[in-house]
Design a protein around this nucleic acid. Sequence first.
DNA 1: AACCAAATGCAAACAATTCTCATTACGATT
DNA 2: AATCGTAATGAGAATTGTTTGCATTTGGTT
Lengths: 138, 138
Amino acid sequence: MGSRELKKAGLKATLPRIKILEILGSNDVRHMSAEDVYKALLESGDDVGVATVYRVLTQFEAAGLISRHHFEGGHSVFEMNEGEHHDHILCVKCGRVDEFLDETIEKRQHALAKERGYAMTDHSLYIYGVCAACQKEQ
Amino acid sequence: MGSRELKKAGLKATLPRIKILEILGSNDVRHMSAEDVYKALLESGDDVGVATVYRVLTQFEAAGLISRHHFEGGHSVFEMNEGEHHDHILCVKCGRVDEFLDETIEKRQHALAKERGYAMTDHSLYIYGVCAACQKEQ
DNA sequence: AACCAAATGCAAACAATTCTCATTACGATT
DNA sequence: AATCGTAATGAGAATTGTTTGCATTTGGTT
Ligand SMILES: [Mn+2]
Ligand SMILES: [Mn+2]
Ligand SMILES: [Zn+2]
Ligand SMILES: [Zn+2]
């Protein structure tokens, strides 16, 4: 279980934290909202409060265990940090999410920031469109 | 005044709509939240309800008069549609906003979407960093 | 001037997230 | 293994940003 990771991240290994780490780790669904995580906890019979879910997700993010995205529609979406940084392409019809990493774009971003005198710290890029499957159906 | 633009957009030229168009048009601040617009209205002595501000902004967006962005922090930010499409670079210290348009990135986005079978409809790209001025101080 | 659908203002309703605070559970220490 | 202090939790109230319902105006057309 995730007690190891938690301690390594300087976090007490509590039941809610272990469970949430498990849920995000099960590569069942990679991108989950706080609500999704909360529901998954309830379904697996674990009684964790919403407040705790939000607190833990924020802590995990601060600890670098997960990252937070802002997909169109407002609320935050989280995913386990494993593998490289990447950006997202989303289907506006069915909500499907694909990931990609493009060196050309990554480099251009840094160059653009530099040109304008900024010390770049981060970026977020989302491409929206209609996925192959959704294009077919009518 | 903006009666012309409003009618051309198929919208009744009402007082609230004219005022809001004026506020967004005065290139005083280019990027404003609904709250910003609401406050600007109050300050200029115009009594418009928040609900109307939100409704009008949504209508303006649908009519293509303005566009909506989601800067980090969640809530929507609007800006008048004039000139080309562009993306944004934001200072995480002072909130400064700069604009840019990079053909290389624009093209790569289309290519990436295509590669993955998506019919791209839109995209959003934000670069975050510390602006020149904020780097200097301390 | 009269009329009507469309637009407005107000307040209540919402959704996502955060805060408050009394209670509980890690995990370090006897 | 029992004890203890602190950090973490759960329940619910509170916030924030935004939307909705509805009675009342208003713009534009006759
Ligand atoms: Mn991802
Ligand atoms: Mn802009
Ligand atoms: Zn799809
Ligand atoms: Zn700055």
